[in-house]
Design a protein around this nucleic acid. Structure first.
Length: 543
RNA sequence: GGCCCUGUCGUCUAGAGGCCUAGGACACGGCCCUUUCAAGGCCGCGACACGGGUUCGAAUCCCGUCAGGGUCACCA
């Protein structure tokens, strides 16, 4: 009987889960579930500067939301395993397989720059220090790193997704750091030790790690560990830039909008600063480069000024997708298709189906561009097929991360009605945007100038007149159901020789403030007679 | 730039030498439905990167070119 497969996901905690990381986690999870194996989670928090407790919480939140449950009851934190790493590193040093190196960051930079200048690759190999050097380094208060003395030879390993032998020549070998100056192990060391100790049999990770693998197998050989099976996954690309999906893509979108905004309105950075409350120097700086990012608190301030919504930004973190109202099973389905296919024409499927069909040999090495349009179409289809209970739960989950929505106050029965009258929507934020007016106080409805102009004022206030006249017809409806309301309005239209649109649109603007809403008669029923009439009266008075 | 990976419709892909006049999905275009926005129905547009081989036969195998991506940290 073959030994069971053990996979793992080993993120470093820097905040919410990145969509690329989620895909890696999903593939590991699917492989484990498909084979009846084990899926482990380990936190690689050896970068003291970046890892925070909050970040771990956010990461776990996203992973749980996706339903990628891990099998180890106790989370493994690398930061809590320093004794283990140090013991191993010290013994490697004692055996001469690793050594202390004293160059400062600046010195290494200079060496690399010099190598680049003479068009030679920079490879770190063991250097000798004189007694005087060592004394000087110590006097300067330098902390040495420990480097692994990489045996100079050819390395080769098989990659399962590439189905290929990857070869690195002795010429490319160099001694890499395994313990940093701050005493923490590097990624390379931690990953090798922990994978071995946790019994990981299959390493599925991003393609960016492909060439790291030779470091890892060299370490495995030195430490006497078995070599796991490696399968490197393609990199998901931003369809606009063709580069790796990055949090910066969100800033790019905002920056672009700001530049367009300033151009079209002839506003300056100072105006933008005044309107948003973000310091001018900060904005100038941010606008000038493609790589600078605004803080999470600054982003919404600027977005508000230039008229950008959360849902206008490209989703990068799993949390973004959740906030915009995707269902986790839809995201899982779509993510699975980024680099894997079930074969034939099958695309949309349940998580259970993915578990059933998943196989390593159907992973392809192409870097896919992340197509949000298609994801949205998947969502539309899945939502059309979902039960009301699933949709209600999904909407509640959406509201839990969007507490500012007026739908938060609705009862389950009300949400169910709203969901039903929005049939055909893509994501929950659509429902929110289109139906929030139903739960707002009558007096808080704001009329969009464009809608008022087009629907009520145009053609000699034709719409306004229709609204005034239909108001009485509505007031006369005794049984306030959408069928009765519809009958009354249609009778009214016949009598006045008006198309339904000429009457429905003015009502729509009066109750919602916009030209877009769920079907009008159901909206009116939901609102109730009093609110409907109150909103119409208020509209008649104020436009 | 060195090294590595990858090239099928605009995008994601199916395709394991003859089932390929290259299939599906998204997007796009047209028509229909319609009280708005959607959703839905029908029809359509659209690809084997290029050049050499191998073979009776190549999208599929080999070589080269070109293009895209990754990587060259005391980050993971």
């Amino acid at each position: 009987m073959p030994s069971p497969i053990v996979t793992r996901f080993a993120p470093s905690p820097t905040g919410y889960l990145h969509v690329g990381g989620a895909r890696t986690a999903l593939f590991n999870w699917l492989l484990a579930r498909h084979t009846g194996g084990t899926f482990l989670l380990r936190i690689e928090d050896t970068d003291l500067a970046r890892s925070t407790e909050d970040a771990v919480t956010q990461l776990l939140e996203d992973l749980k939301w996706l339903g990628l449950q891990w099998d180890n009851p106790e989370l493994v934190y690398q930061s809590k395993r320093l004794d283990i790493y140090n013991k191993l590193i010290d013994s490697l040093v004692a055996d001469g397989k690793a050594y202390e190196a004293w160059e400062s960051g600046e010195e290494l930079d200079a060496l690399r720059a010099a190598a680049a200048k003479s068009k030679r690759p920079f490879l770190y190999r063991r250097r000798n220090y004189s007694e005087d050097d060592l004394k000087r380094f110590k006097d300067e208060g330098r902390r040495p790193v420990v480097r692994f003395a990489m045996p100079v030879k050819e390395y080769r390993f098989h990659d399962l997704t590439l189905d290929k032998e990857i070869v690195q020549t002795p010429y490319e070998v160099q001694d890499f750091v395994i313990r940093k100056g701050d005493g923490m192990p590097t990624y390379h060391f931690g990953v090798v030790v922990d994978d071995a100790e946790m019994g990981v049999t299959h390493v599925l990770r991003g393609l960016e790690h492909l060439l790291n693998t030779v470091n890892h197998i060299a370490l495995q050989e030195a430490l006497g560990y078995p070599r796991p099976i490696y399968a490197h996954l393609s990199v998901m690309l931003n369809p606009e830039t063709g580069e790796k999906l990055s949090k910066r893509d969100r800033d790019r979108r905002i920056r672009k909008r700001c530049q367009d905004f300033m151009r079209s309105t002839k506003k300056t950075v100072a105006d933008l600063s005044a309107a948003s409350g973000v310091a001018e120097a900060r904005l100038t700086d941010w606008l000038a480069t493609d790589t600078k990012q605004l803080d999470l608190t600054e982003q919404p301030l600027v977005m508000k000024v230039v008229g950008l919504k959360e849902s206008d930004l490209p989703e990068i973190m799993i949390h973004d997708f959740r906030k915009n109202g995707y269902l986790p099973e839809v995201l899982n389905n779509f993510l699975a298709l980024q680099g894997w296919s079930a074969g034939g024409d099958l695309e949309q499927m349940s998580v259970e189906k993915m578990v059933e069909l998943f196989s390593l040999d159907r992973i392809n090495a192409n870097n896919p561009k992340f197509n949000r349009e298609k994801l949205k179409a998947f969502s539309t289809d899945a939502i059309a097929k979902a039960t009301p209970e699933r949709l209600l739960a999904g909407l509640r989950d959406y509201l839990s991360v969007n507490p500012q929505s007026s739908l938060v106050a609705a009862t389950d029965a009300q949400l169910l009605k709203i969901l039903a009258m929005n049939a055909g929507f893509h994501i929950f934020s659509d429902v929110d945007e289109k139906s929030a007016f139903l739960l707002k106080p009558d007096e808080s409805i704001a009329y969009e100038p464009d809608a008022v102009e087009k629907v009520l004022k145009k053609n000699d206030r034709q719409g306004f007149t229709a609204l005034k006249d239909v108001r009485d017809a509505l007031a006369a409806v005794t049984s306030w159901t959408h069928t009765e309301i519809e009958a009354a309005v249609k009778t009214f239209c016949d009598a006045k020789q008006l198309g339904l649109g000429k009457v429905a649109q003015p009502i729509r603007v009066a109750i919602s403030g916009t030209a877009v809403s769920p079907p009008i008669f159901e909206s009116l029923e939901f609102l109730g007679k009093d609110s409907t009439l109150a909103r119409i009266d208020r509209c008649l008075k104020s436009v």
